[in-house]
Write a protein that binds this DNA or RNA. Structure first.
Length: 325
DNA sequence: AAGCTGTGCAACCGCATTGGT
DNA sequence: GACCAATGCGGTTGCACAGCT
């Protein structure tokens, strides 16, 4: 694909930090045009700036735009970033759309300078959001690189969504996580239904994904009841080290995967592994139909808002993908 | 006080993607 | 479908500053 030579390579174009005068010229020019830039490439000439159009765009979108929120990130914002990163990876621009007033560059910087280190300190791989092996925790180096089931699930969800991110879609993906977990664990049907009902009620209770992620009491619910798709360490970010110790102890004392009989109180990550392991060796010819059979008892219950497998191809597609993994 | 080191962040670079012809 | 221009995006760099020795 032919790529045009960038004006940034012109010898006379200024680089480096912007001056107040340049900022003023850029802001005034854009404001004169009612906030509509038109062509960034033509902007420098039209505004009298000796800058690359690309540089102008960056300066505007990352710094000068009037709706940019400055200042420290709140705990809620931090939690949201981690959750979204667990779901989306380094899709900073997509993540930025969920944080009003924050730019992708700002979030990316904050991730690299704060959150990433914090996760490493507590023994969580910032790439996979899974617990690091004990010998990796101290130095925080060399993430496992293994794409774990939760990531695969999210990848499938993201693919099914066509790369878009909307509240309902995330909620569906989260409910799917719950469903897969329920299948993978040795739940009784009653527990399965209770689990699903809990997560479904939670999904239906909020106005959107953001409130669901942010409300502390709901976060507490996650760690004590329903296995929602939040990294388990999100329950209380301020006590990462303490939580890590508890988690380590759980890992040491917990029975081998697949032998757990408790339904709800364990970290979602572990359950996800179990669920996916169960799912992955399910060599049945028609996993989606089999799954539909599991759901049959629930269909007699009142679960408003829970989509049906017959009517929602979203579920079929993702489940199919998940089984293929 | 001077030098060194680590940190945070704005800005840059280059590939990917999109849209028009 | 091929080509090109423009923009979007994520990784990386480099500078300013603070803290430490």
């Amino acid at each position: 694909m032919g790529r045009s030579p960038c004006c940034c390579h012109d010898a006379g174009v200024k680089k480096g930090p912007w001056t107040e005068e340049e900022d003023k010229a850029l802001v005034e020019y854009i404001q004169r045009r009612g906030g509509h830039v038109g062509s960034w490439r033509g902007l420098p000439k039209a505004s009298g700036l000796n800058r690359c159009g690309k540089s102008c765009r960056l300066r505007w979108t990352n710094y000068l735009r009037p709706d940019i929120k400055r200042g420290n990130f709140t705990d809620d914002e931090e939690r949201l970033i981690i959750s979204l990163h667990a779901a989306l990876g380094n899709k900073w621009s997509t993540i930025a759309t969920q944080l009003e007033g924050r730019t992708d560059n700002e979030i990316k910087n904050y991730w690299n300078t704060h959150i990433r280190k914090k996760l490493l300190r507590m023994g969580v791989d910032p790439v996979t959001h899974q617990q690091l092996p004990p010998d990796h925790i101290i130095d925080g180096a060399s993430p496992s690189g293994t794409l774990l089931p939760e990531s695969l699930l999210w990848a499938a969800a993201a693919a099914a969504l066509g790369g878009g991110l909307d509240t309902g879609a995330i909620m569906q993906a989260q409910l799917l996580q719950q469903l897969l977990h329920a299948i993978g664990s040795n739940n009784t049907t009653t527990n399965l239904i209770a689990n699903l009902a809990a997560s479904n009620a939670m999904l239906n209770s909020g106005g959107g994904i953001v409130p669901n992620l942010l409300l502390q009491d709901q976060m507490n619910m996650l760690s004590t009841g329903a296995n929602y798709l939040q990294p388990s360490y999100l329950g209380n970010i301020s006590s990462f080290p303490e939580q890590n110790m508890v988690h380590q102890q759980q890992l040491i004392s917990s029975p081998a995967p697949g032998t757990s009989s408790s339904a709800g109180a364990e970290p979602a990550d572990q359950h996800c592994d179990t669920a996916a392991a169960s799912v992955s060796h399910a060599a049945s010819p028609a996993p989606v139909e089999e799954f539909a059979g599991l759901l049959e008892p629930m269909m007699e219950m009142e679960m408003p808002g829970l989509c049906s497998l017959e009517s929602d191809s979203f579920w079929k597609d993702i489940l199919g993908d998940s089984y293929r993994f």
